[in-house]
Lab assay of single mutants.
Amino acid sequence: NITNLCPFDEVFNATRFASVYAWNRKRISNCVADYSVLYNLAPFFTFKCYGVSPTKLNDLCFTNVYADSFVIRGDEVRQIAPGQTGNIADYNYKLPDDFTGCVIAWNSNKLDSKVSGNYNYLYRLFRKSNLKPFERDISTEIYQAGNKPCNGVAGFNCYFPLRSYSFRPTYGVGHQPYRVVVLSFELLHAPATVCGPKKST
């Protein structure tokens, strides 16, 4: 009989979030998941669920729940959905087409922007091929755009693959930082360890 609440607040209220290319994953298990708490945590810009209804979450049980978190800019949030393409979905964080879970995003301009520009958040701009779903690539190998090998040196047709967002508070919403948490629900042929409040007794 599990009584402890799932530590969603640790994920959502973390002081620092990860850069999207090096997104963070927390496995959540053996706890009571009260998803209604999430609705009250922040004024969400996005709370979209796929393959599951957000209002039914509190009635369900899962084997595992994974919470992935990272920062992107406002106009990239739409890429965090099944079947999307674009720089983020292709080279940084890719959801599977049959994704079961929820994408939660909110504006973090007050936390993640600086007047002089916050350069701490990076994204991958160049990659030889698209990522597979939930693949994480943290390599910093020089990207070869031409025929000549780069031998690890940046220059003509040889690019450092990561680029930094420079978040400034005066930017338009599309270029402001957004914190994203992706909850993916895993149903294996194994005992369910993460249940809503109704199912945990």
Rank of each mutant, 00 (worst) to 15 (best):
L122P: 00
D112S: 02
W106F: 08
G146W: 05
C102F: 04
S200L: 14
F17A: 04
R27M: 11
N30D: 11
S19I: 02
S69I: 04
N118S: 07
N64G: 10
D75W: 06
K132A: 12
L57M: 09
L188F: 12
K56N: 13
V103M: 05
F134Q: 09
S164Y: 06
S108M: 03
V52N: 06
Y21C: 04
D34Q: 09
T46R: 13
R25A: 02
V153Y: 12
G152Q: 10
N1H: 12
V180C: 09
S69Q: 06
F167H: 01
Y143A: 02
T3Q: 12
S19M: 03
G74R: 04
N130Y: 10
V180L: 06
D97A: 12
V182E: 00
D137H: 04
E10H: 08
I72T: 05
P191V: 11
F156L: 07
S113D: 00
H175K: 01
S129V: 12
Y123K: 15
P96N: 08
F185P: 06
V180F: 03
A42L: 13
A18Q: 10
L188S: 15
K56G: 12
L5G: 10
Y178A: 08
S69L: 05
F8A: 05
N120V: 08
F44V: 14
L60Q: 12
S164V: 04
Y171N: 02
A105D: 03
R27P: 09
Y21Q: 04
N13Y: 10
L41G: 15
N157H: 01
S166I: 03
T85M: 09
V182C: 04
S139W: 04
Y121G: 00
P149N: 12
N58Y: 09
A154E: 14
T100E: 08
K128Q: 11
N24E: 15
N92I: 01
V71L: 05
L95D: 00
E10Q: 12
A81L: 04
L95C: 04
G51W: 05
T63R: 13
P43L: 08
N4W: 09
I72G: 00
S129H: 12
A192R: 13
N120Q: 14
Y93R: 02
F185H: 06
P149L: 10
L41C: 10
Y143P: 00
N40C: 07
